[in-house]
Amino acid sequence: MESNFSVNYEKGVAKIKLSGRLDATNAGNLQEELKKVTDKKIERLVFFAKDLEYISSAGLRVIIFAKQKIGVDSKVYLISPQEAVLNVIKMSGLDNFMIIEDTYKD
C-alpha cells in the first residue's frame, strides 16, 4: 500500500498528516520519514489525524518511538482523531502523553 502521510518540519515543529491506514504495511515507512526530523530539535510533534481511519499496534509503536526520540520536554499533539482511532489510542495508554485537540493552534 502507498504511504498515506506527509512530514513537514519548520522551526522546531514537525507536522505529520496521516490518512487512510497506518498499519504493519506502512508503519515502517513513516518511521523512516520521522527519523529524518526526530534528529533535529523538536518542540512539537503534531499528528493531523482527521483522515486517519485505522491505526494498529504497528502505527502506535511508531508514535511511541518518536516520542521517546524527541525527549521529555517535547510535546506530541493528536489533532481531530476519528472515534475508532481515538479508542485504540486510549486503550493503549498513548493519551497519557499526547495532547488531543479538535484543532491545532500554532
Binding site: I64, M91, S92
Partner: peptide, 8 residues
C-alpha cells in the same frame, strides 16, 4: 515498544 499488539 513491544507487546502492545498482543495486549490489544
Amino acid at each position: 515498544i513491544g507487546g502492545l499488539g498482543i495486549y490489544l
